[in-house]
Simulated scan of single mutants.
Amino acid sequence: MLVGPPGAGKSTVAAALAARLHLTVRDTDADVERTAGKVISEIFVEDGEPAFRALERTAVATALVEHHGVLALGGGAVLDPATRRDLVRYRSDGGTVVFLDVSLAHAAPRVGFNQSRPLLLGNPRAQWQALMEARRPVYEAVASLRVSTDGLRAGAVAEIVENQLAAATTDTSGTTDRRSGE
């Protein structure tokens, strides 16, 4: 499972990691859009952030039950207390949560700070910085692993994650449980 701020590359890295591990990929933002029948920015404008967060909470809870591959969570999903409890339970059951970390300098070109990111309207750089300052402790608290994506392409990040997963899950017999990449 991948968590992190906008611009960290969660969706792209999830697809690359799933390909490397021969698993399926799922993105809770895509699940929310499919359920709502509209893009996230429209949900924010037409229905408000609380409606989006409720859809997001349901998408994460559903994916944790149904999906057994690589899962990318929306950047703010970890702010929900029930989601945090679910992530702690997921980790205690043997799952791995990877915090994809990124600096503002590297997130900016990826995100583009455009209108499709409703929480970054106004002064997007300042908004992203404030958002990250508030969320960093939460990302760190729920994560089993942290990987910086600064200056790296998705494939390189996926390789780092795969290597860290292998190192973390190799038992004394030398075998690796590939399911921990879920």
Results as ranks from 00 to 15, higher is better:
residue 20 R to H: 01
residue 177 D to N: 02
residue 110 R to H: 06
residue 182 E to C: 10
residue 60 V to T: 12
residue 10 K to I: 10
residue 32 V to N: 08
residue 155 G to I: 03
residue 24 T to K: 06
residue 98 V to S: 03
residue 153 R to K: 11
residue 28 T to I: 13
residue 156 A to H: 01
residue 175 T to S: 00
residue 32 V to W: 04
residue 24 T to M: 06
residue 56 E to A: 10
residue 70 V to D: 02
residue 103 S to P: 04
residue 83 T to N: 15
residue 165 L to Y: 01
residue 84 R to G: 11
residue 6 P to E: 08
residue 15 A to I: 11
residue 76 G to A: 11
residue 5 P to H: 09
residue 162 E to W: 00
residue 158 A to T: 02
residue 153 R to M: 09
residue 16 A to M: 00
residue 6 P to G: 06
residue 16 A to E: 03
residue 130 A to V: 11
residue 118 P to A: 10
residue 158 A to K: 01
residue 74 G to D: 08
residue 149 T to E: 01
residue 145 L to K: 01
residue 38 K to L: 15
residue 44 F to V: 12
residue 67 H to W: 04
residue 7 G to N: 04
residue 19 A to V: 09
residue 29 D to S: 05
residue 66 E to P: 03
residue 38 K to I: 14
residue 144 S to P: 00
residue 116 S to W: 04
residue 105 A to G: 09
residue 44 F to D: 08
residue 92 S to L: 13
residue 30 A to C: 08
residue 124 P to A: 12
residue 27 D to H: 03
residue 115 Q to S: 12
residue 171 D to A: 02
residue 81 P to F: 10
residue 169 T to P: 01
residue 148 S to F: 00
residue 181 G to Q: 00
residue 172 T to S: 07
residue 57 R to L: 13
residue 29 D to R: 06
residue 55 L to I: 13
residue 162 E to I: 01
residue 70 V to Q: 03
residue 51 A to E: 15
residue 137 P to W: 05
residue 114 N to H: 12
residue 7 G to R: 00
residue 26 R to A: 12
residue 120 L to D: 06
residue 77 A to C: 13
residue 92 S to K: 13
residue 161 V to W: 01
residue 82 A to I: 14
residue 48 G to A: 12
residue 42 E to R: 15
residue 116 S to K: 08
residue 66 E to N: 11
residue 35 T to E: 12
